[in-house]
Write a protein that binds this DNA or RNA. Structure first.
Lengths: 211, 211
DNA sequence: ATCGGTGTTGACCGGTTCGGTTAAAGTCGG
DNA sequence: CCGACTTTAACCGAACCGGTCAACACCGAT
């Protein structure tokens, strides 16, 4: 890729990157035209090809950049320092929310890229994924103390439920159009408070009605 | 559309319909080529156009048929006769599972069609939706007795959570490939048992381990 | 064998879109 | 006015799209 891309003003860079996340997160790799991305970024197709040699290069750059951004924000929010589950979730939520204010479709792009089957990029993505994420193995369920939770709670199910809820929420928001970070923040903190209430043992006993 | 389609063996009809659900549920309307659907159905594009005059006709037929199938199975499983929430959910789960064994991608297609923005079909879908579903208003939350649930449970949040979990689960399964109905049945009944346990007041107190 | 009807297809059409290139236009400091 | 840099319109050949059509395969009746 062309180094001149990096000497663009940060704003313009983000604009192009977001255009990519936007288009690639809504269509498969093959059905995501470069022209559409260029339009979304407000530049000409030629210029896009000036910065990125071809579509694959752009796609893989977006993937790498996504991983970089994610780990950067996660680190900054202490998401890799062990704490109790909900503390971790709260931090991670804060991190991802901050990301989403700048790159609204990064999360969806990453998720979709991970499942992308097109042979032109599949192998590269999978290989890269193994590098980036498996090192920081997210075995969040292991190492949880069952005594912290309501007796009889299946921690594995609890975790999956929370995971799928997040995905389902994001999918539906995305279908409706651009993601509204403020609304997302409210919805997710509601969700998190809700989970605390139903899963944690006795955090919310002496709690009156505070607004 | 050509009436001869209906005199095809049921098997072949379902095969074509499923090919449609498959392709349309993975791409937007505009980016779902008829050729791809024909291939997925194992017939030639010409024959597909022989049965359906054009793409729009096929799309709207799939939508109508989807609504018909859904209400048929839901009625057969007494999903419209009021009962308590989890009984209703169990019935509706059974119904949708039975559907999914025959039309694995109907649910995803319907959800996606509902949000389809292409002007060529948007209005027809929305108009039809108003007809089909708003009549049987799914105000499932209203009319619930809070006393049945763990004290302090926010019923609205509970409902949304279960809804999004379902969507998130289905989205992820779909990304991985064809949906495995058996696994889905197990996962969802696990999920339902889990919800009962955490949301319902005292259904599972005197329960030993019976299999 | 042949005729007609039915189910099915390959080949084709005109238009559009695709990834990617190129030559030239705009822009700006000196 | 120059030269270097940024940006684009116009273009290219190939592929793809929705849709058509003439013909092929099959089959029962003649």
């Amino acid at each position: 890729m062309n180094e001149k891309f990096f000497s663009l003003p940060k704003e313009k860079q983000q604009c192009i990157i977001n255009a990519g996340y936007n288009v690639f997160s809504q269509n498969s790799y093959k059905k995501s035209p470069m022209s559409e991305i260029a339009d979304a970024a407000g530049i000409s197709k030629s210029l896009l090809f000036h910065y990125f040699r071809n579509k694959k290069e752009l796609y893989l750059y977006l993937w790498d950049e996504g991983a970089r951004i994610t780990t950067e924000y996660m680190t900054r929010h202490d998401c890799y320092k062990k704490a109790d589950l909900f503390e971790m979730m709260e931090r991670s939520m804060k991190a991802k929310l901050e990301i989403m204010r700048i790159y609204p479709n990064l999360a969806t792009f990453t998720l979709k890229a991970f499942y992308e089957k097109d042979p032109e990029v599949h192998d590269d993505i999978q290989k890269s994924f193994a590098n980036y994420f498996s090192t920081k193995a997210q075995n969040a369920i292991e190492g949880l103390d069952p005594d912290d939770f309501v007796p009889g709670t299946d921690l594995r199910l609890m975790y999956r439920e929370m995971y799928w809820t997040s995905i389902g929420y994001m999918w539906e928001m995305m279908q409706q159009g651009e993601i509204d970070a403020d609304r997302l923040e409210k919805d997710f903190s509601d969700m998190l408070a809700f989970w605390k209430k139903i899963f944690l043992k006795e955090i919310n006993q002496g709690d009156g009605s505070s607004d």
